[in-house]
């Protein structure tokens, strides 16, 4: 564990909690892509099957469980409790366009051709692109609520911090995982445009709107 990974994990946790609290307190999930949330639930489910096979530490298991429970809670709130506020007309990205190619890639490019390893690889690849339905939704409506943009910023920062962690681990431990690094870089790049808008607009107190 190093400081970058810890900050990355906390940033990830913060993002998940911001989203849950936003939905809970406003009793509305308007502007949030349910499809991205389903994909994230799928990411955590396929990656954290290692809870049953590898015990690392209490911290590790607890965080994995919290991520899992929170992501399912978010999906539940969106598709059941506050379904009436879900903006499905704008959430039109087709999940199969991500899940099918990512599944194929996980079969072809992995460290070891075993079920758990393929599922882990699948989760890494899927996480890289799982935010696309949300970004697509924002590009359709042309705006995002400020709280939603804080969520996205925390979520994007998490993978950016992980990249620093991987550089650090490479130099201090000689550890690197090419699959995670490449996917993590792709994931972070997807957020770059959003980061720019966040810094130039949201941090100056304006709402996030896309240039016409």
């Amino acid at each position: 564990m190093n400081i970058f990974r810890l900050l990355g994990d906390l940033s990830h946790l913060l993002a998940i909690i911001i989203l849950l609290l936003k939905i809970w307190r406003t009793r509305s999930c308007a502007g949030v892509s349910g499809k991205s949330q389903i994909l994230f639930a799928l990411v955590f489910t396929t990656r954290y099957l290692d809870l049953f096979t590898n015990f690392i530490s209490m911290y590790n298991s607890a965080m994995k469980l919290i991520y899992l429970v929170c992501s399912y809670a978010t999906v539940f709130l969106m598709y059941f409790k506050f379904k009436a506020t879900y903006d499905s007309n704008h959430d039109t990205f087709r999940m199969e366009f991500l899940v099918v190619p990512v599944g194929g890639l996980a079969f072809l490019v992995n460290h070891d051709f075993t079920p758990l390893e393929i599922l882990w690889t699948f989760s890494i690849y899927l996480e890289a692109v799982a935010i696309l339905p949300q970004l697509f939704m924002i590009s359709k409506t042309g705006e995002a609520e400020t709280i939603t943009s804080h969520y996205l910023f925390a979520l994007g920062s998490y993978r950016a911090l992980y990249i620093v962690n991987w550089v650090f681990r490479f130099y201090t431990e000689g550890f690197f995982d090419l699959i995670a690094i490449v996917a993590g870089c792709v994931q972070t790049i997807l957020y770059c445009d959003f980061f720019y808008l966040y810094i130039t607009k949201v941090l100056k107190g304006k709402q996030l709107t896309l240039p016409a």
Partner: peptide, 10 residues
């Protein structure tokens, strides 16, 4: 070795 390490990351 890499197979053990990665379960450490979230």
């Amino acid at each position: 070795e890499a197979l053990i390490d990665k379960h450490d990351e979230l």
